[in-house]
Structures are given as C-alpha cells and as structure tokens.
Amino acid sequence: MTPVTRLDHVVIAVSDWRVATDFYRDVVGAEVIGVGGGRVAFRIGPTQLSVHGPGMDLAGDVARLPVRPGNSDVCLVWDGPVEAAVAHLRRHGVEVETGPVPRFGAGGPGTSVYFRDPDGSLLEFISYEA
C-alpha cells in the first residue's frame, strides 16, 4: 500500500489576481495565503488551491498542457445543508447553474450545487447532510 494520505494541493489559473482573490475569499471562504511575488494561494481546510495567474513564469514544473483560466473543475465540501449553500451563493450574486442535485463524492452520497468562478471554471459545493 502506498502511504499517500490526502490531497495536498491542485492548481487553478486566473486572469485577474484581485478579482479571483475576492471571489475565493468571499464566496468560497478560502483563506488567502501570500506566497511571494504578489502571488497568492487559497487554503480550504487542509487543502490548497495553488494559483497561476498573470505575470507568472510558467517554465518548470507544470503540466504538459498548463492549466488556463476557466478550465478547472473543483468540488468543495459545504458543511451544512445544501439550501444554505444556495442562499450563500445568491447573497453574493453568484448564479447556480445546476442543482441541488444528488451526487456521489469522496464522502459518499451527497447533494451538490454547481456555479462558476469569474473566469468560468466550474465549482461545486457538495453537502453530505441528509
């Protein structure tokens, strides 16, 4: 058995640092972490969204086809009833594209709502509350 215990981070890309930071902090609830050079990362619990954006040199350790703004698909656990997630998104003026709908995630059966970040990446809040 491989001793991997959890997902540490994934990469998303954004077209505007400030707009993305405001969205991920205010709508997603991420902790904004400065990583130097004007760059940030977004922490959600023990997992991090590392961010690629304008002005970055992408030479080095990146995917063969680097992540681009608008092409990520990320599911985040909503700790509470999915109706509260829908209300939260509405308060922030974020349109729910799909849901609530039943989905199967890492925690088993849940209920999800889908929406997009400012660049068009698909985000999902999944609730495991019955």
Rank of each mutant, 00 (worst) to 15 (best):
residue 107 G to C: 12
residue 111 T to V: 13
residue 115 F to R: 00
residue 67 V to T: 11
residue 90 R to T: 05
residue 13 A to T: 05
residue 103 R to N: 06
residue 38 G to A: 09
residue 49 L to V: 02
residue 110 G to C: 09
residue 47 T to P: 06
residue 74 V to Q: 06
residue 48 Q to M: 15
residue 83 E to K: 11
residue 7 L to D: 09
residue 98 T to K: 08
residue 32 V to Y: 04
residue 18 R to V: 10
residue 66 P to Q: 10
residue 83 E to W: 08
residue 102 P to H: 07
residue 123 L to M: 03
residue 120 G to M: 01
residue 3 P to L: 13
residue 111 T to N: 10
residue 118 P to F: 00
residue 30 A to K: 01
residue 86 V to W: 02
residue 105 G to H: 07
residue 65 L to W: 15
residue 128 Y to A: 10
residue 7 L to Q: 10
residue 104 F to S: 14
residue 95 E to T: 09
residue 86 V to I: 10
residue 71 N to W: 00
residue 17 W to Y: 10
residue 91 R to V: 04
residue 57 D to I: 11
residue 4 V to A: 15
residue 25 R to L: 05
residue 38 G to T: 10
residue 78 W to D: 05
residue 85 A to C: 08
residue 74 V to F: 07
residue 64 R to E: 15
residue 113 V to G: 02
residue 60 G to S: 12
residue 40 V to Y: 01
residue 120 G to I: 02
residue 39 R to P: 03
residue 30 A to G: 04
residue 112 S to V: 03
residue 47 T to G: 11
residue 120 G to T: 01
residue 28 V to A: 08
residue 33 I to S: 06
residue 124 E to H: 06
residue 127 S to C: 11
residue 22 D to I: 02
residue 98 T to N: 07
residue 4 V to F: 15
residue 106 A to F: 14
residue 120 G to D: 03
residue 72 S to W: 00
